[in-house]
Design a binder for these strands. Structure first.
Lengths: 212, 212
DNA sequence: ACCTGAACACCGTTCAAGT
DNA sequence: ACCTGAACACCGTTCAAGT
């Protein structure tokens, strides 16, 4: 994250090229897929040369990494949280709850990751190569926090489905909920049922009414 | 595993090039992804020229179509079956049951489709362009057979998860079942629970024992 | 019928050079 | 610091030509 500072008053026109590349790229990648979108298309939309992109990013994959790393880091933090805690029923429910919040905030990134799994298979955050931060590895780690490798097959299957269900439900029905939180409640209920845990206590959803 | 068939008496050596291309391609596509696998790699493994591939297939996508069409046709037939029948609880359970059988028989194809969704997004069977045979369209149609567009949001979410759960469960735990049918039972139970239907009647699994 | 050799436009990437 | 122009090896595809 080499974000430059304030850009005070006068002109500020073009310090934003990097962000413009990111947003155009995410848009085109989502529309036509990662591999089918060429750097030429991205460059043309921004009225620059292909080579200009290489001033801001060191490769095509690096562009992906740049708008992916926030999501990956958040999931990584969630995994750290879950790993440090006892695998109680309540903690596992909270894990699913928090995961669904992350997913809800990063829908377009998750959509990209899901649809370009093969293209993005060997993609890491930061300079270092952390095997722990592969998309698939993160999924497996989350699943193991719900039902470890020694759990019965049925539990492991259902734990996998629980994790996946959060992602695809949000992806598919993002626009379909009539009330805010309606989808989240359904997703969480379903995921918890699959994981074999009680949903977390209801939060300050129905504000007003009798005090809690 | 480039096992060619019997090679009876005379020569018949090379009528199998087409099948060899298919099998090498599926293998490499699964290993490195569709876009990252070049036709040069495929050709080299078979000791032919890139151009030779174009005698047997009219494009790179056409190779995919060739080993994809059987799976797509089977799902299409299942959809036809489901569409012609009343949406009773039993029929919906049978739909999931049959779908899991198809998936179980075509695991490598499904793995390819799941991991290369973006690359394969506009991919059809046969010459004609049937929008009905897109991977994603088929998924949506299956889901609608479980819970149509007018069903409550919760039912539609869970129907989606039910369909997806069949695929990913088989993909992830193919090797992990100790007894044959164990995984199938778990998958079907989970999917039916999500779809809100009773699992189909147990079939001739536990042979022997008391009759009935 | 089955395959090769050579060419095509396009791709991601690099780099010296400009401001 | 930010970007261009021109070149690189490689890609999918075509096609005339060979057997």
């Amino acid at each position: 994250m080499d974000d430059e500072a304030g850009q005070p008053a006068g002109r500020r026109a073009r310090g934003d090229t990097r962000e413009r590349i990111q947003s155009v790229a995410l848009e085109l990648f989502a529309e036509h897929g990662y591999e089918k979108t060429s750097l030429r298309e991205i460059a043309e939309r921004l009225d620059v040369t292909k080579a200009a992109l290489y001033y801001h990013f060191k490769s095509k994959e690096d562009i992906v990494r740049s708008f992916t790393e926030d999501y990956v880091s958040e999931v990584d933090a969630l995994i750290a949280w879950g790993t440090a805690r006892a695998r109680t029923s309540e903690n596992r429910a909270l894990l699913l709850d928090h995961y669904s919040v992350i997913v809800g905030r990063r829908l377009s990134v998750l959509r990209f990751l899901e649809q370009n799994q093969a293209a993005v298979h060997h993609l890491m955050t930061e300079g270092q190569q952390d095997r722990k931060k592969l998309f698939r590895t993160q999924f497996e780690t989350l699943r193991d926090l719900l039902a470890g490798p020694d759990a019965p097959l049925r539990d492991r299957v259902r734990a996998s489905v629980a994790v996946v269900s959060v992602g695809i439900s949000c992806l598919l029905f993002d626009k379909d909920a009539s009330a805010p939180g309606e989808l989240h409640d359904i997703v969480l209920e379903t995921a918890c049922e699959l994981a074999g845990v009680e949903p977390p206590v209801v939060r300050e959803r129905l504000a007003g009414g009798a005090a809690g």
